Amino acid sequence: SPLIVFPRRVAPSFHDLVTGYYTAHGSNPRVAQYAIQMQTIISLVSAGMGIALVPASLRHLARSGVRYLPLEDEAPLLETGIVWRRDDTAPTLGNFLRMIETADFM
């Protein structure tokens, strides 16, 4: 099936993760469409333009005709980081940092 993915220039790590997963499993990815937002990618899948590998956290985005399936092998992981100004004392930032320190993302 044709693949819908982020353009490499926009998200090189994610693009390489997706295409690398295909290659590692003996397939040559055939990209049908590029999109720069996950919601757009899922909408393109809904329109029948192809398939996409998306983060598990997006399973709640229900679209007509879209089915989310787990990968047969261990899913690839993409590390995400956060940066902020060291001298920022905004309460919102403090609350956010406390929330992510205690969150279970796995």
Rank of each mutant, 00 (worst) to 15 (best):
R9F: 10
R9G: 10
R9K: 10
V10C: 13
V10W: 08
V10G: 15
A11C: 06
A11V: 07
P12L: 11
P12Q: 13
P12C: 10
S13Y: 11
S13M: 11
F14E: 11
F14C: 05
F14V: 06
H15N: 00
H15L: 11
D16N: 12
D16Q: 10
D16I: 02
D16T: 07
V18E: 03
T19N: 11
Y22H: 03
Y22C: 02
T23R: 13
T23P: 07
A24K: 09
G26K: 08
G26Y: 13
S27K: 09
S27D: 11
N28F: 04
P29N: 07
R30N: 12
R30K: 10
R30F: 14
V31G: 06
V31I: 04
V31H: 01
Q33G: 00
Q33T: 03
Q33K: 01
Y34V: 02
Y34Q: 06
A35I: 04
I36W: 06
M38A: 04
M38F: 11
M38G: 13
Q39S: 13
Q39G: 09
Q39M: 11
T40I: 13
T40K: 11
T40F: 09
T40M: 14
I41E: 09
I42G: 02
I42H: 07
L44V: 05
L44C: 07
L44Y: 03
V45H: 14
V45T: 10
S46Y: 03
A47D: 04
G48P: 12
G48V: 03
M49P: 04
M49H: 04
M49C: 15
I51D: 12
I51P: 04
I51Q: 14
A52W: 06
A52D: 07
P55N: 15
A56N: 10
S57N: 14
L58N: 14
L58E: 15
L58G: 15
A62T: 04
A62H: 00
A62C: 00
A62D: 15
R63E: 05
R63L: 10
S64V: 05
S64H: 03
S64K: 10
G65M: 13
G65A: 07
G65R: 05
V66G: 02
V66D: 01
R67Q: 15
R67T: 15
Y68R: 00
L69E: 09
P70C: 01
L71V: 07
D73R: 06
D73G: 02
E74Y: 13
E74N: 08
E74R: 12
E74G: 14
P76W: 00
P76K: 06
P76E: 01
L77P: 03
L77M: 08
L77K: 04
L78A: 02
E79Q: 09
E79G: 00
G81T: 01
V83G: 12
V83L: 13
W84M: 05
R86I: 01
R86L: 03
D87M: 00
D87I: 07
D88R: 00
T89Y: 13
A90N: 01
A90R: 03
P91C: 01
P91E: 03
P91Y: 01
T92Y: 09
T92W: 09
T92R: 07
L93E: 08
L93K: 03
G94W: 02
G94T: 02
N95R: 02
F96N: 07
L97D: 08
L97S: 00
R98C: 00
R98E: 06
R98Y: 04
M99G: 05
E101K: 02
E101D: 07
E101Y: 01
A103E: 01
D104V: 14
D104W: 12
F105Q: 12
